[in-house]
Structures are given as structure tokens and as C-alpha cells.
């Protein structure tokens, strides 16, 4: 449910990785996240830049909640959270440019993945946000990434408020870096940006990305672990079971 296409632009090779479950708005399964992690690692070695996107109208609507309901003890939810945290980190640590084309919708886990990107492209009317506390899930897993891309204040507000916001608002907040009017223009624009970045000298790019990561400090790994543990801590508990179990599809 992950596809990889290679685009060659100006002699540079760009890996276009896509969630490929358009009938489910690319809702994430544990297998998809494991696969994303593997493909992203391999692409960092084999290609000059990475574009991550989703097939169809929505980039990613978050975790497959119907699937989560099949294990009320939280087994699948835990796999998803662990896989998401690992995938974000892999993208973030890639030495190559990582551009995410988030057309249509980037919700909950789908919004969390944006934390792995160097550049995020979306469209003005796209829906983004972290509505997960409504189902008893903590978006804490995103916090260590989000506090790096926007101020701590904005991260606090958006992770605590369960409401969705538009691509335009996300652009104002700094979560999205480039906006298109039309959702169909998001992927072409992301490819264009990736192609532009792919021609930069790789050693300079890798050194700069590495430095920015080091500037996050020695506590970086600890913070990512704390974020994951906070989200894992609620899985299978009464509140999450009740709210998640009450969802109907």
C-alpha cells in the first residue's frame, strides 16, 4: 500500500513515495508505516530527493480507526504510534531533501507525518489538524517534531485544540511552506521544489540538515521517546477504549 515511482528531472533522480489506499483516504495501517520507513531509508541512499504524497484526493486521513477497533486492548494502536514515530524520525534524519505534498487532507497521524519534511506543500482549502483527543488519543507523539517546525506556543495550541484548520491557516502558522489554489497542483509543485533542491551539492545539504538536527540538542532522542511514551500510555485504557469504540463508520 506504498508505491515508489522514480522521476528523473534535469538528470537528478527523485523518489516519489505515495500512500496508495485512495478508497480509504490513505488511512494508515501498521504495515504501511513499516513499509514507509523501509522505502524512505532506501530512497535516501538511492535518490537525490524524496517527495512523499498520497494517491487520490487526500494525502492521508490518519490511522485506520476501524482497524484499531478490532483490538480494543490497543495492540494495533500501539503498532501505529510506534511506526509513525519511527517514520517521522527516518524522514527527518534523511540527508536528502524531503518534500511532502499534502493535498486535500492531512489529519491526525497524516498531519503528524508533516513533521518529517523539510518543505510541506498543501492547498488553500486542505483540511489539517490533530482531532485525536476527541477519541481519547494523545497527539503527544507529534510534539517533539512540531515544536521544531513552529513555535512552542503554536504547537501547544494546535495539539490541544481538536479542531481542523485550512491549508491557508496552516501556511500562516508555519506548518505549510508552499500553498497552491488547486489540490491537483500540489504534487507537481512538490516535484518542482524537490527537483530544485536535488541539484544542490549533496554534501552541503547533508551537513546543513545534520547541523540543524544537532542544534535540537542532546535531548532530541529523549523528547521523541517521551512523546511516543505519552501517546502509548493511553492505549487500551478505559477512556480510549470508550471513545474509540463508540466510533461508527
Amino acid at each position: 500500500m506504498i508505491t515508489l515511482e522514480t522521476h528523473t528531472i534535469d538528470g537528478r533522480s527523485i523518489a516519489m513515495i505515495a500512500f496508495d489506499r485512495p478508497d480509504k483516504r490513505n488511512a494508515l495501517t501498521p504495515e504501511m508505516l513499516v513499509e514507509l520507513n523501509t522505502v524512505a531509508k532506501a530512497s535516501s541512499a538511492d535518490h537525490d530527493a524524496i517527495v512523499l504524497t498520497g494517491k487520490g484526493k487526500a494525502f492521508c486521513a490518519g490511522f485506520d480507526l476501524a482497524l484499531c477497533q478490532t483490538t480494543p486492548d490497543g495492540t494495533i494502536m500501539r503498532k501505529l504510534l510506534t511506526g509513525l514515530s519511527a517514520a517521522c524520525n527516518t524522514l527527518r534524519l534523511s540527508e536528502r531533501p524531503v518534500v511532502i505534498a499534502a493535498q486535500g487532507a492531512a489529519i491526525a497521524g497524516g498531519c503528524a507525518i508533516l513533521g518529517g519534511a523539510d518543505i510541506v506543500v498543501s492547498n488553500t482549502n486542505a483540511k489539517l489538524g490533530y482531532p485525536v483527543t476527541k477519541i481519547g488519543v494523545s497527539p503527544a507523539i507529534s510534539a517533539p517534531y512540531m515544536t521544531q517546525s513552529v513555535t512552542q506556543g503554536i504547537a501547544r495550541e494546535r495539539l490541544i485544540l481538536p479542531d481542523l484548520f485550512s491549508g491557508t491557516t496552516a501556511h500562516q502558522l508555519g506548518l505549510v511552506h508552499e500553498l497552491t489554489e488547486e489540490p491537483d497542483d500540489v504534487q507537481p509543485r512538490a516535484l518542482e521544489i524537490a527537483a530544485k533542491l536535488a541539484i544542490k551539492p549533496p554534501h552541503a545539504y547533508a551537513a546543513t540538515k545534520g547541523l540543524i538536527t544537532r542544534l535540537e540538542g542532546d535531548e532530541r532522542e529523549t523528547r521523541i521517546k517521551q512523546g511516543l511514551e505519552t501517546s502509548l500510555g493511553l492505549t487500551g485504557k478505559q477512556e480510549e477504549q470508550r471513545l474509540l469504540g463508540a466510533l461508527t463508520f
Binding site: V132, A143, Q226, G227, K237
Partner: peptide, 15 residues
């Protein structure tokens, strides 16, 4: 208030 109070508390504590 429509959401899960435990999830909100845990998120705030981490932040």
C-alpha cells in the same frame, strides 16, 4: 470538553 480529558491532560503534561 467533547474530547477525552485524560488525552488532554497527558498532552499538556508532555508539552
Amino acid at each position: 470538553t467533547s474530547g477525552g480529558p485524560d488525552a488532554l491532560r497527558a498532552t499538556k503534561a508532555l508539552l
